[in-house]
Design a protein around this nucleic acid. Sequence first.
DNA 1: ACTTTTGCACCTAGGTGTTAACAT
DNA 2: ATGTTAACACCTAGGTGCAAAAGT
Lengths: 241, 241
Amino acid sequence: MIITKAGRRMFPAMRVKISGLDPHQQYYIAMDIVPVDNKRYRYVYHSSKWMVAGNADSPVPPRVYIHPDSPASGETWMRQVISFDKLKLTNNELDDQGHIILHSMHKYQPRVHIIRKDCGDDLSPIKPVPSGEGVKAFSFPETVFTTVTAYQNQQITRLKIDRNPFAKGFRDSGRNRMGLEALVESYAFWRPSLRTLTFEDIPGIPKQEDILQTSLMVQWLRICLSMEDTWIQSLVWKDPS
Amino acid sequence: MIITKAGRRMFPAMRVKISGLDPHQQYYIAMDIVPVDNKRYRYVYHSSKWMVAGNADSPVPPRVYIHPDSPASGETWMRQVISFDKLKLTNNELDDQGHIILHSMHKYQPRVHIIRKDCGDDLSPIKPVPSGEGVKAFSFPETVFTTVTAYQNQQITRLKIDRNPFAKGFRDSGRNRMGLEALVESYAFWRPSLRTLTFEDIPGIPKQEDILQTSLMVQWLRICLSMEDTWIQSLVWKDPS
DNA sequence: ACTTTTGCACCTAGGTGTTAACAT
DNA sequence: ATGTTAACACCTAGGTGCAAAAGT
């Protein structure tokens, strides 16, 4: 994922669908991004792989993106697909825009937090998400990514250009769409196109089967696009001749 | 003010500064727009005046614009200038976008409401603002306006074009800026450039002198531009030769 | 005759990867 | 060598009044 000083959106944006909330209870929904390991990485061109390149840089001020619709009732949250498309990443450790601060060339994993309103008094964009009763975190391994300031992998670049409306100006029609379709095809072979994630229920909420379910049916491709560069490497890329 | 089927912003937007709130109490801030009288108007070109042209059209579904930062603490509200620039007006009585529905060729007056959070359970974009304890409405006579679907008065048009960044394409440089400056000058003669409005305190809040004060110092011109067409007629308009 | 609608050119505002310059 | 920055062209998204067309 590209990070800049000014702040850059994630693409594709994390989107999530929630069920099992108390319709009449108020909740905050928030996202933070945690390191996957303690390593710094570099991209090796000749093998097209990310390799460990030392230990991680010193930790960075903690930031939380509180979904702008917060707080809202369980009913409201469950009625819509919750999108984090306005979240921005930065590599500026002195950032004062409330963006999430990350180190470049590191691996990260987004987490979604559901915080019951009465437990959210400590919730702040510049403090770690509180834990305990009435707070629950969810992670999606599919969405691990590597931060960069410039793309290392030309296939990632092409996928971004093809899928992000704001990058339309860099598409050269025909050729790219075929490349993407080939990727989608190869992906469908060894990955179920729908996956339901089941979690323990949130404390104080009646237990149900699907507390939180990513809407993979409609957006499995989006998630595919947000994974780390290494992961996409393992796909069979058919370059149209 | 222009109204359309799709919804059109007010320009300039209503902006307000609040003081006297309890910093730790939560409030909603909302705006609605009420008829000034029971009349319909038409614009008479030869006299450059709005004239009564019969009784008002049948009433329209009530709508409330809840400020998108709501709810927020008194501290948060008082720290910023509160802008209603995303509010939209429509003449579509079947509107389903949550816009404020008005009749064309009628006179209206915006009202700002402060609703203590615990009194805002009934607050809804499609219901009248509740009244009573913990709710207070404020009106600014300067901001009365007349709705149209096409501008009747060329001076209004020119003011909008000169002040609204989105209308920059219609400016013909030089001439217009002079016209505006002449208007500003004549306005300053007979109107104090700063006015402080004092209201009774909000129930449950310690009484203070300035509960709500429009930031006229910095934006008296904005308010000048938002008034009804008739009012602007009474200004001495110096057309640069 | 008057009012409203619609498509439009022209803007603001801001999200893309690119590229060359810069930093380390 | 490698990683980062800043200016840029090219987009999306949407807010303007205009003018011709359509209603009433």
